[in-house]
Amino acid sequence: MHEVSLISDVIATVTQSAHERQLSKIHKVKLVIGEYTSVMPESLLFAFDLLKKEPFIESSVLEIETSSGNEFYIDYFEGE
């Protein structure tokens, strides 16, 4: 249920970081999700497609790597 708010946090973090580096387009965002986090990757992908409205991020893709453990973090993003 809270995947939408998680993704809006991810987009906000990435957006801020991209602006700081004067990047004008984001191509890819990569997340790592531990199996013990009860966060659903499918829902995150769905929420990402729903929320990536701004032109500079709208053509980007979300990649999710699952790991063992409890972590849930933004690994990197790619842009120009």
Partner: peptide
């Protein structure tokens, strides 16, 4: 040129 920016930040770091 595409560049890769490592963030390594917990998604719930704000919380």
């Amino acid at each position: 040129m595409t560049e890769r920016v490592y963030v390594k930040k917990h998604v719930l770091h704000g919380n």
